[in-house]
Design a protein around this nucleic acid. Structure first.
Lengths: 353, 353
DNA sequence: CTGAAAGCGCTTACAG
DNA sequence: CTGAAAGCGCTTACAG
């Protein structure tokens, strides 16, 4: 293991070699104005020769700047604790880099209220942040906001769902189609020929349909690809209260009891509760997300599989990626699809978001 | 959001309040000798009042010290590429913190040769590192080494397998019993009553048996707990060449074809090859680790499930945990069990080690 | 036992 | 367009 030639190659050495002051070197390194083309070129050349890497710690110490990041995500509601996990991940990352000159502020919006999202966007824009981390739940509003960010050269990272045509530093989250496809694969193991499968979408907001439909597509694609003679039914439930879900399912089950139910989001616990309360046996259940209420049904066997995509890690990596970008670290992976995890009764204890 | 009272609370402010020089403050902060009890107490009190947190960037810049970490792991052999993943993870972490005054050196040993392990340990001890990251593959030798580390106040982090009674900063890796238990759970889904299951241990080194047996235990425990009338057979194969594996399995399959085979480590590809080359159908297969050769058989359907425990993340978090400890960050989780992931044909594309 | 000075590798005014 | 000085919050000799 040879050591690199570590002979004090800093801004000072560059200045010496270029026969200029360190102030001038600083100007070209930081691309500031007021340097003649000639000296700039000379300095640049020496920087290249030395393969100079700025000392980030010295830089942050001297500049006394704090990198300010805004995180915009849904508030944890009493309807679902899902967003606790990304929040926790962001906080975890924030505390790891707090000592390195980073501060993160949270902005929460109501998932059922676009206006709250828009309002928070306005506040963020006014507060002069250096970077934004967000879950672009409302597509149109998010596009608007991100256009504004782009205009101000404000870098942003997306988590949870992607907007592919936006110039994001990174997207960190699930590939929804593949996620549904995997559910289809599990279904193949659980269901025999000629049995019946029911897809259940539960969501109040039409804006979410995009998510759910992508998963449904993937699910159907898998079953279709394997040409199984499984009957696939489907129901959309626009009212998220348990009573509404129960009523709708009672009707359906009365006509025809499916052998397996696939719920396309974390509302799977409502279906589990329905099965349990009505003492319906022999129905297998697949759904989404590592939430307390879901885990309870996983434990007692009502839910067979939960699919989960590391919400906490989405938050953690989201903030870290943005930070790496802001300190101009070499490269940030632009597309970071989360693994598609299968949670069962036996491994849920070891699931780390 | 109120801002904390951020009024320049640094070493200078402490010195002013304590009416001493910053040199003295530095002495008590770093617990150096040569301070009277009285002034020490005074300074300590003010530090507490101010809730002073040292500026790590300034500290590293001034001290010009580089934190030196040694990583001791098995070499990637042509027998298995497994250790590529932890290596990659360690490198990933190293490059993220390189700018923050950390250097990591690798030391590799031969999994089939204890002496290489011991030799590397001696070299590491001679080289004056600040912290050690290691996979304590050979139990006895590792204990010896770690005793030496403890004597020198050298902190260490364990990955891949744990030595519970050692004063490690952290263990990051699988819980083997639970891992086998999960395999049992999957088996319940794949196998019907009165069918036959075969456990296969393939390993040349007796030292590994500990690993494999823990998994086997978990596997059996799960089946036992559910009181299924499944017949469970078992075979130990001490020779890892494909021919040896094939021969042994041919004998067994001749007597009795199992409905499912559980291979307790990454050698599952040998069994898959055996099934494929001999055109044996109707045998389901569960094994370990996200390796190229295994994935190939997963893709073509010979292997049904692979269990995997994020070897890359083990490396990444291992180094990061050690780093956090060395810069005396608040807390490092001592027991970091990796999630037990189930890899299938459909989700392997999204698996991130 | 304690203090004062120099310096880590940068950035930030300020002067020319 | 360029340079010289001061300073970021610490640590490291050195002097007393």
């Amino acid at each position: 293991m040879k050591k690199e030639q570590e002979t004090t190659k800093g801004i000072k050495e560059i200045a010496r070699l270029a026969k200029v002051s360190i102030g001038t070197v600083d100007r070209v390194i930081n691309n500031r104005t007021g340097v003649s083309v000639k000296t700039k070129e000379k300095v640049l050349q020496i920087i290249a020769e030395l393969d100079y890497q700025p000392n980030i710690m010295a830089r942050m110490l001297a500049s006394k700047k704090v990198i300010r990041i805004a995180a915009l995500i849904p508030a944890v509601s009493n309807e679902t604790g899902y967003w606790n996990a990304p929040l926790k991940g962001i906080n975890e990352a924030a505390s790891e880099i707090r000592n390195f000159g980073v501060s993160a502020d949270f902005y929460f919006f109501d998932q059922n209220n676009k206006k709250t999202f828009r309002d928070q966007c306005a506040v963020i824009l006014d507060n002069g942040y250096d970077g934004i981390l967000l879950a672009p739940m409302f597509e149109e509003e998010a596009m608007d906001f991100l256009d504004n960010c782009a205009k101000r050269d404000l870098p942003f990272v997306l988590i949870n769902s992607d907007l592919e045509h936006q110039p994001r530093v990174a997207y960190i989250g699930p590939d929804l189609f593949q996620s549904g496809y995997l559910a289809g694969h599990l279904t193949k193991y659980l269901v025999k020929e000629a049995q019946q499968v029911l897809i259940v979408n539960i969501s109040r907001e039409i804006t979410f349909q995009h998510h759910l439909l992508k998963k449904e597509e993937g699910f159907r694609a898998c079953l279709a690809a394997h040409d199984l003679s499984i009957e696939v039914g489907k129901v959309d439930i626009n009212e998220t209260s348990y009573d509404a879900v129960q009523q709708r399912l009672l009707e359906l089950f009365d006509l025809n009891k499916p052998d397996l139910v696939f719920v396309t989001n974390s509302r799977v616990s409502s279906v589990a509760r329905f099965l349990q309360e009505n003492a319906i046996e022999g129905v297998q259940l697949i759904g989404y997300d590592f939430l307390e209420e879901n885990i309870a049904y996983l434990k007692n066997g009502t839910i067979d599989f939960l699919i989960c995509q590391k919400p906490q890690e989405q938050g953690y990596r989201g903030l870290m990626s943005l930070y790496q970008h802001l300190i101009s670290a070499p490269t940030v992976e632009q597309l970071q699809y989360m693994p598609i995890d299968i949670i069962t009764k036996e491994n849920y204890l070891y699931y780390r978001n």
